[in-house]
Amino acid sequence: MASMSASKVLMGEPVVEVESLGATYTGIPVLDDISLRVYPGEIMVIMGGSGSGKSTLLRCLLGLHRPSAGRVRLFGQDISGLGVRQWVVLRKKMGVAFQGGALFNSMSVGENVCLPLREHTRLDPNTMRIMSRMKLEMVNLAGFEHLMPAQLSGGMLKRAALARALVMDPALVFFDEPSAGLDPVVAADLDELILRIRRAMQISVVVVTHELESAFKIADRITVLDQGRILMTGSVEELRNSDIPRVQRLLTRTFEEQPVDPEAYLRRLTGGAD
């Protein structure tokens, strides 16, 4: 479990505030009435099964998907009405580590990590190189800056993406499925890395994942999503002690028996023919 207790971190103005958020995807509702807050220094894990809406929620938080209802505030600013310049200022305070890394294949690891510095600062190339090496050192990738993304393993890709997310010294970092596709040892290393970086940089972290073990290890609080709605938000202990059946099924990985209507089943099989 995360070293910082939930009571200790829930202080100050929330860095992320979501109010009654709704979202649709190609006309189909995927999120409904989502409200949550992430406080400074907190690690909030958004958890849920496949199709629960957690990736759409993350895209709404990042301003990549326009919600159909409700609002998202980042650092106290409602993101729905932001202009280009305001977005740029806000984005400099955030970092995102995507599931597949999303490193630019035409650039080396070092160039990838330097990119935000090159685009947003007027630092000289040597300073940028030193800063990017510091971040690569932080994620245990020092000495690999000359490699191309195609030459990295899955775990290294995610760490390089993390270094790029951290290079502007953000106050808030988002992780999309950090341990997906990694073996248990590498996944555990990455969890440790997230905790270490939170401690070292005093940042807030939002992690979207479906990995229970990882969530329990790093989370201060966990929000559980199911079918586009929040089932509960609470600490790891509160989650374990929850009596909500769907939360318990998620924790114990219990198969949920679906009642079968034989006539509807037959109709589906025959495509509605008599």
Partner: peptide, 20 residues
């Protein structure tokens, strides 16, 4: 780049994909 989320990565870094 669109499919590997590199375009999204540009956006969240505050870099306009159209400019870049």
């Amino acid at each position: 780049m669109q499919m590997t989320q590199e375009v999204d990565a540009l956006r969240v870094m505050g870099i306009s994909p159209v400019r870049y």
